[in-house]
Simulated scan of single mutants.
Amino acid sequence: MDFIDRAKKEIKENWFKNHVAEIKGEEGLQVIYWGKPGTNMYRTKYVLSGNNVFISGDIGEAVYSLTDSATLDNIKDFNLGYFTSKVEAFCEDRWDFDQSLAKKELIEYWDEYEKNEQYDDAREIYKGILSAIDESTSLDAYRAWLMPVHQDTSVDSDTMEYVWNFGKRMPYRLIGYWVGLQMVIEQLSSKEGKTA
């Protein structure tokens, strides 16, 4: 099971277990309250207005600007990647940085493309990238630490472009916003099926 699948499972089973959707308004302006009755744990409010989705609550805030109208009917077909690409504002960094993943990607990349054979100073480049990973807790910090590696060694820009994204992970919150909306849609569809 990959990172995204594990995140979806955890979010469904832990964050949003026993959550119930309550909708106010109508298409064009809907407010969806998503929470477990009697608690405030992982309570989330989705506001669908025009082409925008506004999210607030226990898991933070975000604004999405869609190319289609922000309706549950349109959103139900969005996959995680597409929906997340529409985020305009988010309460945290757009990407998380995972040191373990970055190290794994560095090793795989270096071996697969035989970088030791391409550069006279390959050992310095590798050590510089590894040091950048070890010194960083965010993607921005990692990228800042990488700049001297690029400037002080013979590494080319194609290699740096690839290395630039080592350790880049989608935050659980962004996954959670999408998972919550999908669960809301599923729950409401299930209710409509029972009443039809």
Rank of each mutant, 00 (worst) to 15 (best):
S49I: 12
G50F: 09
G50E: 12
G50D: 13
N51L: 09
N51E: 13
V53Y: 05
I55F: 05
D58W: 08
D58F: 08
I59C: 10
I59M: 14
Y64M: 06
L66P: 03
T67S: 13
D68R: 10
D73L: 11
D73Y: 08
D73A: 11
I75T: 00
I75H: 01
K76N: 02
K76S: 06
D77W: 05
F78Q: 07
L80G: 10
G81E: 01
F83Y: 03
T84L: 00
K86A: 08
E88L: 12
A89I: 10
F90E: 02
E92G: 15
W95I: 13
F97G: 06
F97L: 06
D98G: 03
D98T: 05
Q99L: 02
S100P: 09
K104F: 11
K104D: 14
E105W: 11
D111C: 03
E114R: 14
K115H: 13
E117C: 11
E117A: 14
Q118M: 13
Q118W: 13
Y119Q: 01
D121R: 03
A122P: 09
R123Q: 14
R123Y: 11
I125G: 02
I125E: 01
I125T: 03
K127E: 15
G128V: 07
I129T: 12
T137C: 12
S138N: 10
S138I: 08
S138E: 11
L139W: 11
D140M: 11
A141K: 15
A141P: 06
Y142I: 06
Y142Q: 06
R143D: 00
A144W: 07
A144H: 10
W145S: 15
W145L: 10
M147Y: 12
P148Q: 06
P148N: 04
P148R: 02
H150D: 09
D152S: 11
T153P: 05
S154T: 13
V155Q: 04
S157V: 14
S157L: 14
S157E: 10
D158Y: 11
M160G: 04
E161W: 10
E161I: 09
V163Y: 04
V163P: 01
N165Q: 08
N165M: 10
K168S: 12
R169W: 03
R169A: 06
P171G: 04
P171F: 00
Y172I: 14
Y172H: 15
R173Q: 09
L174Y: 07
L174A: 08
I175E: 07
I175Q: 00
G180S: 10
L181T: 02
Q182R: 04
M183F: 03
V184K: 00
V184Y: 01
E186A: 04
Q187E: 12
